[in-house]
């Protein structure tokens, strides 16, 4: 039983991070029909920028309390990633907006390589230890289940950010402009919506989420590296598709479901398959679920409309 609950928590923690990253994929896809493969690497830039800031702060103000240090690091990482998201859209994707779909997709992959290589030049090839400013020492176990403060923060912060984003999209003026642009950006622009600004805004918000996810990811595992964005990016993309790409609620649900499936998959696949499969097949387990969902519901768990630009 304690193993079961522990796996549930493991799944929730990783699932929250996936969900946060998946939001960035899904927002951009919803509006542009573009899968921004460089999104995972924005996460990496966020984590490494935060790391650099923390190291700087530890040098100049070693007595600073961890909470301030983390806040300042986020305050630096988020704008850096926002600028990066803005520049990516402005310099690379905007020119290709009316190009065949394959062109921006390949550009996105190229952008991903570019970011990784630049990060490798700046921060080197080595893994960096990420200061764990929120404690990773487990709290007093409850019924044999362990959870660390940083994991609690991840779950709560992700939930708060997701609620905030939902409100932004459904309640605010810019949110309405986003939805209008997603529906049909030509018509939206005829109605007086500045679609270029809306698209840029979407990239900027997505990048900010990625920065936060990057800092969370690095804080939880205690490492940062120029290639760290690749795997979570890929998993979050899967989560976005699972939930129904283009749909915000779907991305959140997809992230959590994927996290849980992975966690339970690794934990129980051996029993479920009577010892035939083992934990080396944990990713297969996630993709079987994805396959099944897409067979029976091609638009994903919560996907309603099929994008006419797909």
């Amino acid at each position: 039983m304690e193993t079961l609950i522990q796996q549930l928590i493991n799944g929730l923690v990783i699932g929250s991070v996936y969900a946060l990253i998946a939001l960035g994929y899904t927002m951009v896809y919803g509006i542009l029909g573009l899968i921004n493969f460089a999104h995972g690497d924005v996460l990496m830039v966020g984590a490494l920028t935060a790391l650099q800031t923390m190291l700087f702060l530890m040098g100049v103000a070693p007595g600073l309390s961890p909470i301030y240090m983390l806040t300042i690091a986020l305050m630096v990482a988020i704008p850096v990633c926002m600028t990066l998201g803005f520049l990516m859209e402005r310099l690379a994707y905007r020119r290709l907006r009316n190009a065949p779909r394959l062109a921006p997709l390949i550009t996105a992959i190229g952008m991903s390589f570019l970011l990784q290589t630049v990060a490798m030049i700046i921060w080197g090839r080595n893994y960096h230890t990420f200061p764990q400013l929120i404690s990773t020492t487990p709290l007093e176990p409850i019924a044999g289940v362990f959870i660390t403060p940083v994991q609690v923060v991840i779950i709560i912060a992700s939930a708060a950010i997701m609620i905030g984003l939902s409100l932004l999209v459904t309640r605010s003026k810019i949110g309405r402009a986003m939805r209008a642009t997603a529906e049909n950006h030509r018509v939206a622009s005829l109605m007086g919506v500045d679609t270029n600004a809306v698209i840029a805004f979407t990239f900027v918000v997505g990048a900010a989420l990625a920065a936060i996810a990057g800092v969370m990811f690095a804080s939880n595992y205690g490492i940062a590296h120029y290639g760290m964005g690749f795997m979570p990016g890929l998993k979050a993309f899967t989560a976005a598709v699972l939930g129904g790409i283009g749909n915000l609620g779907g991305a959140m649900l997809g992230g959590i479901v994927l996290g849980l499936v992975e966690s339970f998959g690794a934990g129980y696949i051996e029993h479920l398959s009577f010892g035939f499969l083992n934990s080396s097949y944990q990713d297969i387990f996630a993709f079987i679920i994805l396959g099944l969902v897409l067979i029976f519901k091609p638009t994903g768990l919560l996907g309603e409309r099929v994008s006419d630009r797909a």
Binding site: T3, N10, F217, I223, M231, A266, G267, N278
Partner: peptide, 21 residues
């Protein structure tokens, strides 16, 4: 226990939880 991961993974919580038992 004989568990598996990959050379790109960072999260081992699931298999470690299984091992803990």
């Amino acid at each position: 226990a004989r568990e598996f991961t990959t050379d790109k993974a960072t999260d081992f919580n699931a298999i470690l939880t299984k091992i803990r038992a």
